[in-house]
Each structure stands twice: as structure tokens, then as C-alpha cells.
Design a protein around this nucleic acid. Structure first.
Lengths: 302, 302
DNA sequence: GTAATAGTGTCTTTCAGACAGTATGAC
DNA sequence: GTCATACTGTCTGAAAGACACTATTAC
């Protein structure tokens, strides 16, 4: 009834994220033989070796990066035919967080996430690349549509992905933006890359997976206490804020951030303090019970 | 570097949802040979026949139910070893919406969603099953933990999944509840089912997939204009409200609902009206431009 | 003292929930 | 007129953003 069995190679791809020096970083394998550009840690799923997909993924990451993953969640399953030009047809992508970026292994490194997406970091205001490169290129693409209906569709898609005067830039639509740029030929991975290429390229469709991950992280930040997976057990409120800002890609208002976190009951003081250049900051720890009390506890900034 | 190719059978499972007569319904295959209980439409993914996972899924649903799907989104990929006791080890689940529940095919029927989850429908207040069956059973399970640490963990998990005085029932945690009941033996699919079994059973792990879907729908309702996929092109505001209530599993305040929908700019009047037993209701249509203007436009009820 | 960073109090706007009341149809 | 359903206006309270201000360190 459900057809003859057909066997397919299944890959597991890992987006392993950390934040250090206020910079979101992602674990990548450096280029080498068979690897034209940076690639995510990945491997084949072997059901005989691993009971679950999670377990298989953890095993590959340990093997390739000597790293034990903390929080792990499934991202998306990509199944385009010949998506990476090889035999593999299905790949299940996962998103993982680790507390520190110290562990290393040969051929693997922590790379700043925004090198692949320079247009996504608005912490110092709107990046020049948006004004100088993206808006003109996308506007030209919209204008190039001959059919009025097609032009209207492009207009709408553009407005959603990169905003306009009326519709502001939506920081969560990372994937929509990347796919738009891919289609227009603004990224090296495009089928027909144009003369101007944005950001660093990755192997296969790994930058698309990374875009999916960044969008997911930004959406989840508000609703779930994800950030704490990236911080040391003890941290200060400014450190927490800077980590959130790094991932959200924009600045937050410190007094309000403080109130949001405290009112949510997400943290408690340890009693100690951390030396800084100014007034010392109180050390805090995460209070896991918060999630039981308020099931949607996150840092509800807008 | 990424290991020898290993081939795996990949299944596609479809949760196809519709709302008719104020009742959320899901498309199921009726029991028969090789099918011990209701099952979701499903089939094997064949990359030679279908370029994408989506396309394969649409083909299977068309074949099994003579039904063309509208909106389709990926739900989750399940990969537990021997999850359905047969050879298949991976299954990619999708969620689809259709506007009407008219089309049919042999051995396939529209079944009320809440038959599988009677504890999820709070439209007429808290269901008796929650008070009479679920709370006692879960409390007994918590109390049965000998280790104090284990008891505390069970306590916390319970509080999150089904609430208490302080923590209210969270309508989105459908999967957490189902998994809790599965573990305690309150559903027929459990490894060790107890004497009391809640809701109708399904084949394989399909009820778990259905729980994932219901949780996803409830979460997405607030942020994305999903409901309109389930309604005829013209509809009244009360119809819209009842459809949302059916999926959310609870009643909403009509005046506020009206304001939320109108302020979001999600609908516009067609000019016509629908006859009812009282004052006629104005007919509306969905305004797709709303999503471009306010990218997070949904029906933001709490 | 100044500079630098951490932290507090309060005003204002926004928005969702409650509720009282009005409108328009069938009978 | 009554009944039933659709729709409107207004108050209220919670929460988030802006902003002015205070606190505690190093120098």
C-alpha cells in the first residue's frame, strides 16, 4: 500500500553555535580535498550504530570536532534531488549550542556567523552593505520584471524580506533573505551568480542551513530560555544582554532588558560580583524552575 | 570523511487538516489488513519519481485520498530505530491544510481530531476527562517516584505539561502531554499500557505525529494567517472565530477577536452578507497584502 | 574630582481583555 | 413587540519602550 521499499542515503548536518567575545560563532570544517569551501560538521546516518538521529549527530560532531554538545534540536530536513551534486538526497539538519568555544580539532574552527551573513548584523546600525549593495540590486531585480504581475510579486516578496519605509527589516526572516539573494544571483552558491557576491560562501547548501538556523534562533530567543545554554553557569546581566544582542543582531535597551529578565524570574543572584572597568556587575545564575512557572518564559523583547 | 554510504527507507507521513461543522478534522486511513488502527496517509519517498519531499507527499496524498493539498509545511523528522516495528527507520512528517472536507476516497475518511485527544478540547470548559482521569493518574505517577529527586522531576514535568493551580494549562504543549501520557501508560500505544486508556488509538506512532501537528497549529495561529487556508474564500467574522476556536480548543471573546482581526488588516469586506438566525453577518475576504505590511500578522489572541 | 559601567524609578504608549450597550435580521 | 445573532464603544490593567536619574568601582 505504501509502495516498495526504496533506500536513500541520509546525511546529518550540524549547526553548532557559540558566542564568544560578543560574536556569534559557528563550527565549520575548513576547505580541503573534496571540500571546496567551509562546510558544516556532517556525516551519514547509520541506524545500526545509532538508535536515534540525535545520537548519530552527536557521534559525528564528537568525531570531527572533539566536542560534546549540550542542547540539541532538529532544524529542518532538506530533500532536494541532487542538492549537493553527489549521491546524497536527504539531509537532516540539527541546531546545537555549546557553552564555550575552547575545544578544537584539526581542520575545524569557530568562524564568526556574520561573515556568512554580513547584512544580518545591525548592532552598529544598518550595515553599509544593505544600503550600498542590497537595496540597489534588489530594486533593479524588481524593476527588471517585464510582466506587471511578476513585478508586483517581486515587490511584495522584497518588502517582506528586506523591508521598505513602511515595512521595517524583520530580523527573523534570515532564510527569506538568503533565498531571495540566491535567486537574484547575489551569493556565490547561486545557480547563476552575478558580478557582486555577498558574504563568504559555504560548501553545498550549508549557508542555507545556516540561514535557517539563525532565523530559528532569533525567533526562539523571545520564547525560550535558549541563551543560557551559551553562557557560563555564572554570568552578569550585561553579559547576558550582549549575548542576546549578538544573536538578535541588534542593540537592546539595557534598563528594559533588565526588567524583562528579572520580571520573568529567569535568573537569581549568586551573591558574588564581577570586576569591570566601572561598577562591578552582580553575578547571576539561571533558574530552571522559571520555565515550570511560566511555560513561555523567554526574554520577551520586541 | 563522512563515512560509507548507508541506505535507509524514508517514509512520508501527512497530517491533512480541515475544519467543518466547527470541528477540526484530520484525514486518516481506516484500519484494514496490515493496518491495526487509523493511520495517516503515508508512503515511501522515491527520489527518482519526485524532485522534492513536498512533491512526493502530494503525490501520495493524491493517490490515497484523491485530494489536492493547499498549504503544506514540514513538521518533523522522526528517526527512532524500529519506531513502527518494521524496516522503515526514518519518516518525514508534513502538515497540510485543505479548504473543505468534501473529497473522499475508499478507505479514507475525515475524523474529528479531538477523538484522538479528548483532553485538548476546552471549548465547553475543562473536559471531564482531565478532572476525572488525567489529574488523578498523573498525581499517582508523581507520588510513585521513590527517589525524591525523581519525584521533583516528575512534579516539574507535570506542572509544565498539564498545569496546576499556579501554572495554567498551556494549550500549545500538546506533544508534551501526549508523551507524558505515553510514558505513564495512559494511551494504547504505550510500551506498557495501563488499565485506563485515553482517546482513540492510532497505528504506529501516528498519534505522536498528530500531537506534534496540533501543537504546531496552535502556536502558529497567533503569528501567521494560517486559518484562512481552512476557510472558503468568503467567510464571516463569526465563522473565522469559530474556526480559530476549534483549533485553539478554547473560546475567545468575540468583540476582542473582531478588533484583533480588523486592526491587523487581515480582512476586507466583500460587500455581501450571510443570512443567519439573527442579524446577517458581513462577508469578508482575506487580504494577502496584510502579511507584507505587518510581517508577523496573525491573530494575536492570548 | 572624572570616566566608566551597573543599576533604579517613573512616565507614556500600546494593546489586549472585560463589559455594557446598540444594530439588524426572523418571527 | 421578542428572540437571536452581529457588531460597537469605552474602561481598565498589564506590559514594554523611552528616559532621567542614582550607585559603585578605578583612576
Amino acid at each position: 500500500m505504501t509502495g516498495m521499499p526504496i533506500d536513500i542515503a541520509v546525511a546529518l548536518d550540524a549547526v553548532v553555535a557559540a558566542v564568544s567575545d560578543d560574536e556569534p560563532r559557528v563550527l565549520v570544517r575548513s576547505p580541503g580535498e573534496h571540500l571546496p569551501a567551509d562546510a558544516l560538521p556532517a556525516g551519514t546516518f547509520d541506524p545500526d550504530a545509532d538508535a536515534t538521529l540525535d545520537a548519530g549527530l552527536r557521534r559525528w560532531v564528537t568525531e570531527q570536532a572533539q566536542l560534546d554538545l549540550g542542547h540539541l534540536e532538529q532544524l529542518y530536513t532538506f530533500g532536494d534531488r541532487g542538492r549537493d551534486g553527489r549521491r546524497r538526497v536527504l539531509s537532516v539538519a540539527y541546531l546545537a549550542f555549546v557553552r564555550e568555544s575552547t575545544p578544537r580539532a584539526p581542520r575545524v574552527r569557530w568562524h564568526p556567523w556574520y561573515r556568512y551573513f554580513p547584512w544580518e548584523d545591525w548592532r552598529d546600525g544598518r550595515p553599509a552593505i544593505v544600503e550600498d549593495a542590497i537595496f540597489p540590486a534588489v530594486e533593479a531585480w524588481v524593476a527588471a520584471a517585464t510582466d506587471p504581475q511578476a513585478r508586483h510579486d517581486r515587490q511584495r516578496r522584497t518588502r517582506r524580506a528586506i523591508g521598505t519605509r513602511r515595512a521595517p527589516w524583520n530580523e527573523e526572516l534570515v532564510l527569506e533573505r538568503y533565498e531571495l539573494f540566491w535567486e537574484i544571483g547575489l551569493v556565490a552558491e547561486s545557480r547563476a551568480p552575478g558580478p557582486m557576491l555577498l558574504g563568504e560562501r559555504m560548501a553545498f547548501d550549508h549557508r542555507r542551513i545556516l540561514a535557517t538556523a539563525l532565523g530559528r534562533v532569533r525567533g526562539a530567543l523571545r520564547y525560550r530560555p535558549l541563551v543560557f545554554e551559551l553562557l557560563a553557569p555564572d554570568f552578569t546581566l550585561p553579559e547576558l544582554q550582549q549575548t542576546v544582542e549578538a544573536l538578535a543582531g541588534r542593540r537592546l535597551h539595557a534598563p528594559n532588558f533588565r526588567r524583562l529578565v528579572e520580571d520573568a524570574g529567569l535568573v537569581e543572584p549568586t551573591g558574588a560580583a564581577r570586576q569591570t572597568a566601572g561598577r562591578p556587575a552582580k553575578l547571576l545564575r539561571y533558574r530552571p524552575d522559571a520555565i515550570a512557572e511560566r511555560p513561555d518564559a523567554g526574554i520577551g523583547f520586541r
